[in-house]
């Protein structure tokens, strides 16, 4: 067919191209170096940064569902809240070790995700939206109706996790808290990244692009989505568990609708389908939220809503591309 030499060259080129996709880019290394620098040099922002890291992990989880799986979910807080309560209760009732709590929360939420995935994956986008909202509302109702266990509307108080790794005590400045959240987020990010570039992750991306063709090359589409949804649920559960452990408090708010909706916004601001969208979005969202809350404390949601509408109508690419475009014009001028 072709000369042996061209074939060898083609082989090398194909192998290179396939490796290239999953290779860490310099900007990624820079990103995590900056995250590390924030831990080393921003001690007075630990509490805020801790929240950003947790929200970022939570949004990464939603990215696995929406950005990679193509499943529109408006109830992702169900898993976050479930993990949050699970970790809080574990800490209160006999498992003070944070990492153990985290692991149990991950498994428990994963099981919840696995079971509910069969409900969610049936039906159209509309029924998916409804079912995901409903599952979150149901869990919220349960938490609300069991005040003996969850503290009901008062929230679960007195969550006091033990020493991290048997050595570090959670301090009031949030140093250990942020270090812990950042480290967990980093490790889970690496696992997600590995997952996405594996043949399995590849097949999930294929499903989103063309489910018909994916099934026509012999891949069971629904089974793939079940796995993606379960993994994402476990991630959200870990994020929730981190929140419970690092803030020593769980409120009904962790299951609220606006949390799922805000999360969607975060992901859209940051961008879907490249893994960093959730982390970047979480940081931007926090900044925007603080800015708006200072401007109009009671009505900041209005501006968030307007941002959502604008992002859709104008197109996300054009909004985020604006700074780059302006710089380009400036240079040409």
């Amino acid at each position: 067919m072709s000369e042996p030499t061209t074939r060898a060259a083609n082989m090398a080129e194909a192998a290179r191209a396939l490796r290239q996709v999953s290779r860490a880019k310099p900007v990624e290394i820079l990103f995590w170096l900056l995250a590390l620098a924030s831990f080393l040099f921003l001690p007075d922002q630990y509490l805020l940064l801790n929240e950003v890291a947790i929200t970022g992990l939570f949004a990464l989880s939603l990215d696995l569902v929406i950005g990679y799986g193509g499943i529109v979910s408006l109830g992702h807080a169900a898993f976050f809240g479930f993990g949050c309560y699970l970790a809080g209760l574990l800490t209160k009732f006999g498992v003070p070790d944070p990492l153990m709590g985290l692991a149990i929360a991950a498994v428990g939420t994963g099981v919840l995700g696995f079971v509910t995935s069969f409900l969610v994956l049936r039906g159209s986008d509309l029924t998916r939206i409804m079912v995901t909202i409903s599952i979150a509302v149901l869990l919220g109702e349960i938490a609300n109706r069991l005040p003996g266990l969850t503290g009901g509307a008062d929230g679960l108080q007195g969550v006091a996790p033990g020493l991290l790794l048997g050595r570090f005590e959670f301090d009031i400045f949030g140093q250990v808290a942020y270090g812990y959240s950042l480290a967990v987020t980093f490790v889970l990010f690496l696992i997600a990244r590995r997952f996405i570039f594996s043949p399995f992750g590849w097949s999930i991306r294929a499903v989103k692009q063309n489910a018909l063709r994916t099934s026509s090359i012999g891949i069971h589409v629904n089974r793939r989505l079940v796995v993606a949804y379960t993994l994402a649920a476990a991630y959200a559960g870990v994020a929730g568990a981190l929140l419970a452990q690092t803030t020593s408090f769980v409120s009904l708010d962790v299951l609220a609708f606006h949390r799922s909706a805000d999360l969607l916004l975060i992901l859209i601001i940051g961008g879907t389908g490249y893994l960093y969208g959730g982390l970047v979005g979480a940081l931007l969202f926090k900044v925007i939220q603080d800015f708006l809350a200072n401007l109009t404390p009671e009505y900041w949601e209005f501006w968030i809503g307007m941002l959502l509408v604008a992002l859709v109508l104008i197109g996300r690419d054009r909004v985020t591309g604006l700074p780059a475009m302006l710089i380009g014009k400036f240079r040409r001028a």
């Binding site: 529109v72 909706a261 969607l264 968030i304 809503g305 509408v309 604008a310």
Partner: peptide
């Protein structure tokens, strides 16, 4: 979904 939630938030 995002667009209409945005309207609700407004």
């Amino acid at each position: 979904v995002m667009f209409s939630i945005g309207l609700v938030f407004m």
